[in-house]
Amino acid sequence: MFHALVAVKQVPDTTNIRIDPETGNLIRQGVPTILNPYDAHALAAAVEWKERLGGRITVLSMGPMSAISSVRECIELGADRGIIASARQFSGADTLATSYVLAEMIKRIHEKDPISVLLFGKQAIDGDTAQVGPGVSIRLGFPLITYAVKIHEINLKEKTLVAERKSEQYNEVIQVPLPCGITCEKEIASIPYASLPNLVHSLKYEPEVWTAEQPIAFPPDQIGIKGSPTTVFKTTQPELHTAGEVINTADTGVAPAVKTAIEKIEAAGILDMPEGCA
């Protein structure tokens, strides 16, 4: 039976982030949180394959309890089971501690209900690290296809999956044995419309909550801040660049503005503009 597990993260919508100009800190208040966009596409791929093969989809998210809304969104789109890993002890985790918790939980899920495919977004937009997918897969010993743009085939009998990824030189079509991990680009699948029954179901759906003690008792030194080798030493605001001169074509006309621009580029010695260009 086909069983896809999708790891999803709830993230602040980074387009709407504002910084306190006095303190340089993030103003979290009023910043909406969203399901990480790449994860939504990973889920969409799982939904497509569930339609073809039958089976089910589990979503797993580590984060504060507010992640319930992201998990409900996944149920709406076609996931069957939602689990939230939420505990004070998990907080402050870097990608190593995150991949540890997710991998341990996935092992537990896998024992009872074997997983065919693990799906991740290519990266989470709050940190853009793209490390959790590879981290979890290597911990589980699953072969991994990153930056997948297309799943060509999932063969449950042969226990193989064929997917395509884009690297700098090639589009690589790769075959891996199941179970495997995949990190997804947006092209992998488009987000489906939620069906009415799913919508209704998701409103009442209560995800399972797993803590640092239940059902897995995590060693405290492996999780959260204690289990994270990296720490933020300091944060600053991006350097402000000084704006250069601005010419308005409404004042000068187009041709003279362009002439000035070419002169300045030449004068900066940056371009070997053709001699006599300006």
């Binding site: 504002r18 910084i19 340089g24 993030l26 080798p229 990296t230 030493f233 300091k234 944060t235 991006p238």
Partner: peptide
């Protein structure tokens, strides 16, 4: 590195590993 979509610049250290 930039974080949160380039809105913050964070300096990260790895002390013991």
């Amino acid at each position: 590195r930039p974080a949160f979509g380039g809105n913050v610049i964070a300096t990260i250290v790895c002390r013991t590993h």
